[in-house]
Design a protein around this nucleic acid. Structure first.
Lengths: 199, 199
DNA sequence: TTTTTCATATACGCTTTGTATGTGAATGTA
DNA sequence: TACATTCACATACAAAGCGTATATGAAAAA
């Protein structure tokens, strides 16, 4: 069967994003050569500039892919924990764990902001933020949390989780540090609860 | 009087850091041209490479300068608030306010991590972190906070403060958003207190 | 005074990006 | 089926910027 043009184009987009993801993760955005990267995918820069406009355009696509994967995984963890407050804490822990991957660190946490600007303005991060806001909203309806601005809390919690991942990754004993980070995260988060949580 | 060689060299270092700070703030690290930057300071790239090794070296010097200024200002705010818990909260608010400057956003929050790596490993940030850790340690001795890892709390608080600044700066109503951010910061921070704080 | 050192300038090569143009296969039409 | 057109991708080109190797001239040393 002959492949339609749109199908082929979709294939090259996928190939380029995969190659970009690999190159950006291994060499960092600035040091990744578009020539090398596209050649590795059996293509040339022509395909890249046609599909993504420029180097930054490819970066945006790569970041969106990774970030979406993260948001999905975190939400899943939250649901597995039964939603509500426990779900929120599980989401936070999941985020920290995901951000331990070198790929995520290099692309999403370090290079992403420099290339694409404030992460909280990215479409993908916004999706994740919205999920957190919804959960916090439910808790607010149940009168379980203090009357503070929910969006602000959600943003600070997200930021704290992502930040702590860099710390964990750089530590000598990542396993131990991870536990410390999660505990601290839950400790801070408990500040929004009306009634002290013991477990 | 004739200037000694060391004095002159110190002058060029200062000139280059100032020019770099300006260029990095206005154009971003990647788009800042070393040729242009040094010419603006009445020098050439020769001086730059001799003094700082490479573009990254200059960036490190610039970041260190800004970051040190921030740490000093934040500590001052903390002391003015009388130290202790109130001082800690004042430090946090000061950090958020300082990070509202476009210069700080572009250089320290966005480009810095991409060029220099995890901020919590920078000498300057470490100084600030140490100060927070000391204050938290004093509170721990007074048995005022929960028995959690102090370094972890300090790191998360710092991260949350810096992150929220990006949000505030990008908002339509920075003044209002700033208040929300500070309130949320204090709300989360209160999670480490043993006894609920009312004011 | 001469010799040496060294902070800065000059000159060069290499890499990389973005664009402008070319090409051939898929799509539409008579 | 034959022809025209589109368009995804490749090729060719020009410009900019980084880092290094070399040159220079003024302090510092002898």
């Amino acid at each position: 069967m002959a492949k339609t043009r749109a199908e082929k184009m979709e294939e090259t987009r996928i190939k380029l994003i995969a190659a970009g993801r690999k190159a950006f993760a291994e060499k960092g955005f600035a040091s990744a050569s578009m020539d090398e990267l596209t050649a590795g995918a059996g293509l040339t820069r022509g395909a890249l500039y046609h599909n993504f406009g420029d180097k930054r355009g490819l970066m945006a696509a790569v970041v969106d892919q990774i970030d979406t994967e993260m948001a999905t995984a975190a939400q899943k963890a939250g649901q597995a924990a039964g939603g509500g407050w426990k779900g929120l804490m599980a989401e936070g822990a999941a985020y920290i764990k995901l951000a331990l991957q070198p790929e995520v660190q290099r692309i999403v946490l370090l290079d992403g902001p420099a290339v694409l600007g404030d992460p909280s303005q990215w479409p993908s991060q916004n999706r994740c933020l919205q999920a957190t806001i919804v959960t916090l909203g439910e808790l607010a309806e149940k009168d379980a949390i203090k009357p503070v601005d929910i969006e602000a809390i959600a943003r600070l919690l997200n930021g704290a989780a992502l930040n702590s991942a860099l710390w964990v990754a750089a530590s000598d004993d990542p396993h131990m540090t991870f536990r410390k980070a999660v505990t601290a995260f839950e400790c801070l988060a408990s500040g929004v609860l009306k009634t002290p949580q013991t477990d």
